[in-house]
Structures are given as structure tokens and as C-alpha cells.
Amino acid sequence: MDKVPAGDAVVLGYELVGSGPEGVIVFNDWLADCTSWKPMHLYLDKEAFTYAFVDIRGYGRSIDIPGAHTSTQAALDAFAVADALGWERFHIIGFSMTGMVVERMVLIDPARIKSEIAVGPVSAKAVKMSPERRAFFESTLVDDDAVRELASRITDHRLTKEWSEHKLMLARTTRDHAAVREYLDMWTLDDFSAEIAAARPETPLLVVAGEWDQESFLEEDLKQAFMVWHPNAELVVIRNCGHCPMQETPIYLTTLVEAFMRRHASPAPAGE
């Protein structure tokens, strides 16, 4: 596939963790900026990897960057981050809605991607919703109780009320309201699955599902999307976990993703 011109791409806001030779771009989800990944920071291999926790436009460190709120724009911006860091080839990790962003990246320039990881991801076919379900998600934009309910739903109503309060805090303090509304359209309406199906990207892909996640994100849903389109894909289900393993099971998720990335890392220079 031809590269998409990157004339309007910008270097997004990001936080660097680690100083290793393997670069990793990590994205935020719909409910929050990259603060969601903080519980994993303690356990990351900082000698093997350098992680860039990237907030897409409208979130966290990029909350005031104007422009399109689409998977293509976020993908192009992420390549701009990699260029700024001097990374020719690197790993990418998408979470929830940014599963669509990492899919865009392997369409735009697969040669630059060493491995792709999608955690509780929205696939390229988007999440098709009934009018009632979409109305609920729209209500979370203004209704605090709806956010609390969403936080409970994505963990099968198994976690404490403090969990829901924490997710509400992040939703209200790390996102731009207008951007969030447009990203909702992205991950529920922007179906580019035909492009992925035609391309059949050979990039190594790890899909991570949570046993307690909600409809559209469960093992069978992900098998019928990612595992059909990607010839080099693997799927792992984390038991006793919902939609947010970086918060619910941070040590185990770190172990999974780093083991996968090590398998697809650049060979060590001769003599090391």
C-alpha cells in the first residue's frame, strides 16, 4: 500500500520510560490518556526497551493539539514521534480504541513495525452498536454515573467502587470533550476492515483479551477479526481480568508483551 502523505502530522506529547535499544510506542484508550499505563512502569525492562507513552490528539500531553481525530491522523502523528526519536523500526502497542491506530500503522508503513500488540482492542471493522448501546456511550460524555457504570461493565461488575471513581477521574481530567466525541465516531463507524483483509499484514501481532471484558472485546470477537486478517497473529486471554490489564494485572501484561517483543527484536550486534 502506498504511504499516506504526512504533511499535517505533528509530534504528539509523550513520556519516555527506559533507555534500551528497542523502541516501543504505546497509545492511550478512549477513557483516558496514558496515565492508564502507569501501574506497569515499575515492572518494565528499562535496559532492553525505551517506551514512548504517546497521547493522541485531544488527550493528556496532546490535549491542546488541534486537528483530525481519526485513526489515520493518529497513525501519521505516531510515525512523526518515531522520527523525532530517531527510530527507524520499532514496536507498537494499542489499547482499546487505539487498536485501530496500530492497524492503520501496519497498513501505512509495515516495514517500520517490528511487532504489533493490541490490548482489549477495537479492530479495523469498528464496534457495531445498537442505538441503545450507542446512546449509553454518548451519555458518558456528560453523565458521571454513566462513566461509573461503564467502568464497572468493562470489568464484569467485579471490582470496587474506587475503581469506578478512578476511571471517572481520568475521564474528566485527561480528555478534551469535543475530541472524545469524534473518537467515538471513529471506533464505532470507521470500518476499514476490507483494507486490512486485502493487505493481510505479515507484521507479528499479539492480541490480548480479558476474560471479564464486555461484548465486542471477548476472545471469539477478536478471533473473528484479527486472527482472520493477520497470518502471523497470536491471541492470549488473561484470566480474572477485564478490559484494562495494564491496571488490573500489570505484572502479567508486562511479562506477556515484553516476551513477545523480544522474539521480534533486532539481533544484537556481533560480539555482544
Rank of each mutant, 00 (worst) to 15 (best):
V106C: 14
L205F: 03
H41P: 06
R263A: 10
T72S: 01
L218Q: 09
V180Y: 08
E211C: 04
Y183A: 05
A82Q: 07
L150D: 09
M186S: 13
T188L: 10
H264S: 13
I238S: 06
E258T: 02
E219K: 01
W163H: 00
I65Q: 14
T174F: 12
T98V: 12
I56Y: 01
R57D: 07
P204V: 13
E248L: 04
E22R: 09
F49V: 04
G13H: 13
L253A: 05
G242D: 11
Q224E: 14
M227C: 00
A78M: 04
Q73E: 07
K38H: 10
G210D: 04
M129A: 10
S71A: 13
V147K: 08
I65P: 07
V102W: 06
G13Q: 15
G94D: 01
H41F: 05
A178I: 13
E47H: 02
F53N: 01
S115C: 12
P66G: 02
T70C: 08
A78C: 02
L16E: 12
P231W: 14
M1H: 12
E272Y: 15
V208C: 00
Q73N: 09
V236R: 08
F95W: 06
V54D: 06
T173F: 09
E195W: 02
L85D: 01
I92P: 15
I238Y: 08
E165D: 14
A32Y: 06
G60R: 13
G58A: 00
F90R: 03
K125L: 05
A225H: 13
L184W: 00
T255W: 06
T140V: 03
M97V: 07
S123Y: 07
S62T: 08
G94Y: 10
I117V: 08
M105P: 03
P131H: 10
F49E: 11
T70P: 13
L31S: 09
V17P: 08
L31M: 10
I92M: 13
I92L: 04
K38M: 12
E195Q: 04
E116K: 15
C34M: 06
R134F: 05
A80G: 15
E215N: 13
G20Q: 12
N28R: 07
L42A: 14
P131A: 03
V4C: 11
E258A: 01
L205S: 05
I93K: 03
V24F: 12
P250H: 01
F136G: 02
V101R: 15
P250V: 03
D83W: 01
G210A: 03
F90H: 08
F90G: 02
A270F: 14
L107F: 11
L206Y: 00
K223A: 08
I113T: 14
A171I: 08
Q214C: 15
G13W: 13
A209T: 08
F53K: 02
D83V: 09
D109G: 13
A80S: 12
I56W: 00
G99I: 06
V208L: 03
T254A: 03
V236M: 02
A32T: 11
Q214M: 14
T160M: 05
K161C: 09
P201T: 08
M100V: 07
V81P: 08
K38L: 07
T98W: 10
D191V: 05
R200L: 06
A198D: 07
P110M: 12
W163G: 06
E149Q: 12
F226L: 11
A151G: 13
P121I: 06
L168P: 11
R61H: 02
M97E: 11
V207I: 05
P121S: 05
V119D: 11
T174D: 01
W212A: 05
A179I: 14
M246K: 00
L141D: 06
